[in-house]
C-alpha cells in the first residue's frame, strides 16, 4: 500500500505542476459558472412570474422553481455531470499513456512493484485529480446558501445538494476508472481521451435508447445507463442499486487495467 500511495502522490504532484491542471480547472469553473448564472436568471424570472399569478396558476413543470435546491442546484449538478463527461477523459488520458510515451513505464515495470500496486496507485492519484477538479463546484451551493433567496425561503436542502454532489463524485470516479483502462491500452494520450469519450458518451445516452425499446430490454438498458442511475441521486434518492452499479463499473475497469498491465508479462 505504501507503494500505491507513493505512486498516487507522484501522480498528484505532477498534475499540479503542469499548466494543464489549471487549464482544466478554468474550464470547469468557467463552464459551470456559465450554467449557474443562466439557471439563476431563469429561476428569478419564474419566481417573478409566479409572484404575479401565484404558484397555483403556474404550469406544473415549473414547480421545481419553487425552491433553490430543485430550481438551481439539482439542475446545476445535472450540467456538471455533462461537463465532467467532457473533461474527465482529458484527466485520465495521461495516467498510463504518458508513462509509456515517456519510457517511464519501464521504470515502474522493472521496480519491485506488483501490477496491482501500480493500478491502485494510479487510480488513487486519478481520484485525487478528479476530486480537486469537481471540488471547485462546491462553491456554487455555498454562494447560494449565503446570498440566495426564494419565495419558499432561503435555505438550501443540504442533504439533497450533498447527495447530488456525491453522485457527481461517483460519476467522476467512474469516468476516471474507465479512462484509466483505456489509457493503459495506448501510448497516445489524445487517442486515449478520444476513446474514453467515445465509450462514455453512448453509455450516458443509453437511457434515451432504452425509451425506444420494449420490456424487458428497456429495464435492463435503463439500469445500465449512467444517466438514469444518476438522476435518482441528483433528486436526493439514494438507492443501493445505484451504488452497486457504479462500484461494479469501477471495479471491473480496475480489473481490466490490471489485466492489461499484467499482460505485458505474457506478451
Amino acid at each position: 500500500m505504501r507503494i500505491a500511495l507513493a505512486i498516487a502522490r507522484k501522480e498528484l504532484s505532477l498534475f499540479f505542476t503542469t499548466p494543464w491542471a489549471y487549464g482544466v480547472f478554468t474550464a470547469m469553473v468557467a463552464l459551470s459558472s456559465f450554467f449557474f448564472v443562466n439557471l439563476l436568471a431563469t429561476f428569478q424570472q419564474v419566481q417573478e412570474q409566479a409572484r404575479e399569478v401565484t404558484w397555483a396558476m403556474m404550469p406544473p413543470d415549473m414547480t421545481a422553481y419553487r425552491n433553490l435546491t430543485d430550481g438551481v442546484m439539482v439542475q446545476l449538478w445535472g450540467m456538471v455531470i455533462i461537463i465532467t463527461l467532457f473533461i474527465a477523459p482529458f484527466l485520465s488520458m495521461r495516467l498510463f499513456a504518458e508513462e509509456k510515451r515517456n519510457k517511464t513505464f519501464e521504470l515502474l515495470m522493472t521496480a519491485p512493484v506488483r501490477p496491482i500496486e501500480i493500478v491502485l496507485g494510479k487510480y488513487l492519484g486519478g481520484l485525487g485529480i478528479i476530486s480537486a477538479t469537481l471540488g471547485l463546484t462546491l462553491i456554487f451551493p455555498l454562494v447560494l446558501s449565503a446570498f440566495g433567496h426564494a419565495d419558499s425561503g432561503t435555505a438550501l436542502e443540504w442533504p439533497t445538494v450533498l447527495l447530488g454532489y456525491g453522485g457527481i463524485l461517483l460519476w467522476g470516479a467512474t469516468c476516471m476508472a474507465v479512462g484509466m483502462f483505456i489509457s493503459a491500452l495506448t501510448e497516445s494520450q489524445m487517442l486515449a481521451a478520444f476513446l474514453t469519450f467515445a465509450v462514455l458518451l453512448p453509455w450516458m445516452l443509453l437511457s434515451g435508447v432504452a425509451q425506444a425499446t420494449e420490456e424487458p430490454l428497456r429495464s435492463v438498458l435503463t439500469y445500465l445507463s449512467f444517466d438514469a442511475q444518476l438522476q435518482n441521486m441528483l433528486k436526493g434518492i439514494l438507492d443501493v442499486q445505484t451504488l452497486v452499479f457504479f462500484a461494479s463499473v469501477i471495479v471491473f475497469s480496475l480489473l481490466l487495467t490490471h489485466r492489461t498491465v499484467e499482460a505485458r508479462r505474457w506478451a
Binding site: 507522484k10 505532477l14 505542476t17 503542469t18 515517456n102 519510457k103 517511464t104 513505464f105 519501464e106 521504470l107 522493472t110
Partner: peptide
C-alpha cells in the same frame, strides 16, 4: 536489480 534502460526513464516535470 538496478536497471538503466536505453532511454533513461525520467519525469521531465520532477
Amino acid at each position: 536489480i538496478g536497471y538503466l534502460p536505453e532511454a533513461p526513464p525520467l519525469y521531465p516535470d520532477m
